[in-house]
Design a protein around this nucleic acid. Structure first.
Lengths: 318, 318
DNA sequence: CTGAAAGCGCTTACAG
DNA sequence: CTGAAAGCGCTTACAG
């Protein structure tokens, strides 16, 4: 069943059927009703591929995980992000291709080949680096994309967590739990996310006149554990920039010895009764999809910062 | 840059360019070289949508999660499955649309609309039910699909875990840990997966002359905990049909009082030091993708049973 | 081994 | 308000 057959059955031209399907307003009401009846009687559904070829747009978007295929969804992060995006896309009859590409070397070529194949209308970009070749490439191609996260350039549209206020809240929460001497165990240097968090924690420590030191762990669970062991006597509270680091320690020591707060609110954190800063990753994914959709339709959009919130649990109530 | 421009630049017809692209063997070597040079010089990549329209096939597959959008990937299961499938698809330049549909009521219409829109070449079917309307529908449409799991009809191609031998191994492992009086906490009745596991556990208990009882928990963590409390004195070993149930108990009692073994090997099980039966879900996803690809190309395929394996941890080494 | 031409199923300017 | 026709970018039988 195609548009030609429908046209014949309804005694109109294919052009008219097309106008009815696409709700063009220049169709006489009686014609429209007649055509719609034939369409519904025959359960006709237009061929999306043929439509895409004409319209130069498919309604399909893509997110490419640039990691070894083995561990795409290792972080809860990716799952929730995809869920959020799917929530928007499915509401709007759009589709999402989830894809992987392992080799950093020819990543740009991979993006290029997908653009050239005309299969997708836009990308969600993950794992942004400070100097990310994908940005320059996509900008030069003038191809729609939304970045999850920011860097110091921000010559792109992004959706990001409010890392600064998240870290601010973490330190303030420790302060409210009577910590006056806090260790902030940060991720790695030259990481825009980490920099934002440090801005936030410094702001809170200054505001409340708290002594706070910062050490870098590179997000390594082992390194974090070493730092913990070496410093647990010197501080009366610790802020970890990832739940995973805090959980590594809780898993070793069983009961927290000083108040500890994490970041991310991964699934495990509930089991370890870890107080943490929740990133609303679902929201991030949802808004990334929404802005990408708008962008690919030529609408003007603004980057969005999604608030974080405090999840208070036992690790700061000793 | 399209096929017409390439043809002009190479001084051949578009038909010849097409033949070169698709490796048709009836092209003179020198022509082929000439055309390939122009293609590579201009970084030409064929329009996949136009190709799809002609070939009636897109190289795109879909997996539809029939749950509330909120919790698609709640189970580790779904993530690993998708990873496995992506591993195959990306190797073969195929794409996977991850999709969701909440409303059971018009699920068949949703499948139908996707088939009619011609966007995908096949489906991976999840959450199979004993009487699953999707099966009858897809069979009647003669549309390619692969089912994850089995039911008692099996009028379809499937990939499934070896639940029977998994349960057999679980009981045998408890037996080797000197359990002679075992409780098998099963899922729900009329569930093909659960039935297979019961077959397996009965086989092992008969073989080794172990006393074994079976109680149904409906996979409820609370119910499992009640069953545990009521029965922990009566048995010297327990087999839980899901890690989640066993972990609920370990989380309450902290240290196992009798040997306990789970099923699934979810991420949490490592943290709770739970011995469990690992399903090779990545393998299941990979093989589902592979068979779906073959099937949609008209090749003959066979259903596959993927072996499970024992992950021995502390909960059976007290 | 190669080309001219038809056609996949749509949409959309153009004309009336 | 509607239709005839062109065209999106490919592939493939057909003919030579």
């Amino acid at each position: 069943m195609n548009i030609k057959e429908i046209a014949k059955l309804a005694n109109v031209s294919v052009a008219t059927v097309s106008r009815v399907i696409n709700n063009s307003n220049s169709v006489k009401e009686s014609t429209k009703i007649k055509v719609l009846k034939v369409i519904s009687d025959h359960n006709y559904k237009p061929d999306a591929i043929a439509k895409s070829l004409r319209k130069k747009s498919t309604g399909i978007y893509s997110i490419i995980f640039s990691v070894n295929t083995d561990k795409i969804f290792e972080a809860d992060y990716s799952q929730e992000l995809v869920q959020g995006a799917l929530s928007y896309f499915s509401k709007h009859e759009l589709k999402l291709i989830v894809d992987t590409h392992g080799n950093q070397k020819d990543l740009i070529n991979y993006y290029k080949s997908i653009i050239d194949s005309k299969i997708v209308d836009g990308f969600v970009i993950l794992d942004l680096r400070e100097n990310d070749p994908r940005i320059d490439f996509l900008n030069s191609e003038n191809f729609p994309y939304i970045v999850i996260g920011r860097n110091s350039k921000n010559n792109f549209n992004y959706i990001d967590s409010d890392n600064e206020s998240g870290a601010f809240t973490a330190i303030e929460h420790l302060y409210q739990k009577n910590c006056k001497n806090i260790l902030h165990i940060a991720g790695n240097k030259n990481n825009p996310v980490v920099d934002k968090r440090i801005e936030g924690s410094l702001k809170a420590s200054k505001l409340h006149n708290i002594n706070m030191d910062i050490l870098y762990s590179d997000f390594s669970e082992e390194k974090a554990f070493e730092i913990y062991l070496k410093n647990k006597e010197k501080y009366d509270g610790m802020f970890f920039e990832s739940d995973k680091m805090a959980i590594k320690i809780l898993n070793e020591i069983k009961k927290p010895e000083i108040p500890m707060i994490g970041f991310d609110n991964i699934m495990l954190s509930k089991y370890f009764d870890l107080t943490t800063i929740n990133q609303n990753i679902f929201e991030i994914g949802y808004n990334a999809a929404k802005n990408l959709h708008k962008l690919s339709q030529g609408q003007k959009i603004n980057s969005i910062i999604i608030p974080t919130d405090l999840i208070e649990r036992g690790s700061t109530n000793l």
